[in-house]
Design a protein around this nucleic acid. Structure first.
Lengths: 182, 182
DNA sequence: TTAACCATGTAAAAAGTTACATGATTGT
DNA sequence: ACAATCATGTAACTTTTTACATGGTTAA
């Protein structure tokens, strides 16, 4: 139900093929989807059946024909409704917190190792985020407002990761205070 | 694969029934699972078959018999391995960002309404988080270190929500700067 | 009497992932 | 020769959710 709208949004933005959608998906980090073929191609067929997108088949000499999709007026109307409608609360799935939760049997060293590894991962991702932000839009926005919003969407992730690092500092400080040994 | 370990962790912490696990699940907000019966009861059966947990059936007069599960030594060993093992990167699923992404067709008022509603949701959840933290542990920790860690796990969510509010301020400021009208 | 809590479970459907299948082109 | 990019799709599987099924107790 939700993936439909994401794809619809992309197809309203730009005329795209399933293949292009797939690579766009992998670049958006606030999308929890893997962007697998099965979902993308079947969703496109479904959207077309419902009259929300239209297909233009572009034959190519040696490669299989491209099927370029774009949103119809009905599609755009439905997208608008969905965007105005309610969104579920932001959910985070943080496996590290689960590990931390059940880390009772770990030694101090093991616990520190766990935290170190997690922090390294967060730092790495933060760097990738910043790199992506620096390179800027492979996504060209249609209006200045949209451009700003898309920047802020990227910034949301960056700030979340930076916040996670701040939390890690507090975590370390607290642990060092508790059992300062070694 | 992952749910097994969460349940195993709970059953190492305390002897629990499926019903109790279900209500615990709903209280942990960094768990993306709904805590539905199907998963819980079938996982418990699976864990028992693998010898990772053991069952104690407690008959009751009028209610169906309780099946109280707890982790075995093998279960505890496996849990330890899992906790020490790698965890996937933290993922966030934020539907609001998707709405924002495709908000091109919205008027300024509509966009502001969207942001307002999201902010209200975040504020509400932040209050609930703080309330939960204030009431403290319905989860009694086994050691001082565990207690600190569990506090920090709660604090992770609180900080994330506070961070989201900070981001919203920047979002509003940016929008006000761009198209200051009305 | 209506709802919430206690307590177990199953069935069916939806959502999502991984791997397979084809096949040309371009760069290393 | 090998991998990556382009370009489509399908099959099998796993995961997760929703709804069903039963039935007693307690409080508004």
């Amino acid at each position: 139900m939700e993936l439909d709208y994401v794809i619809l949004g992309f197809l309203d933005w730009k005329e795209l093929t399933g293949y292009e959608l797939k690579s766009l998906f992998s670049r958006l980090d606030f999308l929890p989807w893997s962007g697998n073929n099965n979902q993308i191609y079947t969703t496109l067929v479904g959207l077309e059946k419902r009259g929300l997108v239209e297909k233009k088949t572009v034959p190519q000499e040696k490669l299989p024909a491209q099927k370029r999709y774009s949103a119809t007026a009905e599609g755009r109307a439905l997208l608008r409704e969905a965007v105005l409608g309610p969104s579920t609360a932001p959910a985070q799935a943080n496996e590290f917190l689960l590990h931390l939760m059940w880390s009772a049997s770990l030694t101090e060293q093991e616990l520190m190792g766990l935290i170190d590894r997690y922090q390294q991962g967060v730092v790495l991702e933060l760097m990738m985020c910043r790199e992506r932000a620096r390179r800027g839009g492979e996504f060209e926005a249609r209006t200045p407002r949209e451009e700003f919003l898309w920047q802020m969407i990227g910034r949301n992730r960056t700030m979340a990761l930076q916040n996670e690092l701040n939390w890690l500092v507090q975590l370390r400080n607290g642990l060092a205070g508790k059992e300062g040994s070694s």
